[in-house]
Design a protein around this nucleic acid. Sequence first.
DNA 1: CAGTGGTCTAGACCACGGT
DNA 2: CCGTGGTCTAGACCACTGG
Lengths: 233, 233
Amino acid sequence: MPQQKRTGFQEVRDEVMRRIEARVWEQGALLPAETDLAEEFGCARATVNRALRELADRGVIDRKRKSGTRVTLQPVKQAKLDIATARRLVEDRNAAYRYALVSRHLQPAPGWLSSQIGLSPGSEVLHLETMHYADGQPFHFEDRWINIAAVPESADADFGAVPPGEWLLAAVPFSNADVSFTATAADDALAQYLACPSGTALFQMERSTWFQDAPVTFARITFHPGYRMRSRY
Amino acid sequence: MPQQKRTGFQEVRDEVMRRIEARVWEQGALLPAETDLAEEFGCARATVNRALRELADRGVIDRKRKSGTRVTLQPVKQAKLDIATARRLVEDRNAAYRYALVSRHLQPAPGWLSSQIGLSPGSEVLHLETMHYADGQPFHFEDRWINIAAVPESADADFGAVPPGEWLLAAVPFSNADVSFTATAADDALAQYLACPSGTALFQMERSTWFQDAPVTFARITFHPGYRMRSRY
DNA sequence: CAGTGGTCTAGACCACGGT
DNA sequence: CCGTGGTCTAGACCACTGG
């Protein structure tokens, strides 16, 4: 009988994962109870519990009291996308980052924005248009709206030097956001900003951000032609 | 002195999070040690440990032995994208899903594909072109390549009825993938498939999938005009 | 009701990494 | 060195839920 000295929740987790991949436990099959696995692996139940909890977090298994643990039938795969600042994206490509403020206006929120992030109509917002460059080439254009009521200091911030994304990350570091991605054709303004022909297919990201249920900012970011967003899962 | 009866790692986790959001602990600030927090909350250190571990997983705090736990300076926000089957995407919109096989060829892997997913040149692959509809309207076009060596059964599978994505999910349920997103202009073929003018801006997803380090499949999925992929973080 | 996972505890030992 | 987090243990009680 082979005795396993090295227990450890990672070994348990990986071994269980191996058996699932090897179809020792088929999709939908019931796994042994935690107490049984603990006995088999020669460790405490808490160790098995943590191992299985991690697999449940990954979506590999489903756990229910009384009925037990089963291999997920249709694993929902999740891709994780890092939402980074423009500076980070550019410098990760070993390019020089440059930022420019295009326009800045304090104004009442337009109707579409109010409904987009849930502002009361006519709230004062700061509208910023900014450009971000990688090695002198256009990287992306950002159309941003900041809710003055949520972040009063923004009205006095110097966005000539610090990009609004970075400024907000420092001012409101922990926030929730909705994000969406789409393809759009360059209009005349975008074509000029991104130095491409009108009608070029462009990758666009929109983000609505809240802090403790209060709307903070909305940003529409349009990337240079050919931009590719990558992830892994 | 208010005594907290309800301990629980969630209460600890949420209270620590609250203090971070309220700037009780500033960005970069050192938190009390686990033993101190355990004493304050009147619970075991393991409970505090689990609470802080979850916040570390979320990227809210950084933990290092000896130096302690600090509030993350630049929280890396991660968006989680559900990668679902076309059927799921369509039916979640309360639309009727329909699938059609456009073409199917067994052939040697072209060079670009070999380098894309790491196949030895000339490996046999199954090339499938498929269409997916929502309420009769084009939803997306899928250009898929399957490595026969990795999934031999695929050569005999009936892709006339079951979409390759669903078939592979059942055949190779647990796999790793690289995924990327981009905008592209419709060429003549895509324009015809998706019933739009040539040159229309289209949202495109590419996925390369491996199972235990062996390349399984590559898919390029082009969505109908106006498609928007949503997420939240 | 009874079996299963969910969680907590008090204590222990270890590994890492500043000082 | 030695404080900090990382992990394990043995035991306990609880909450949910299927039969």
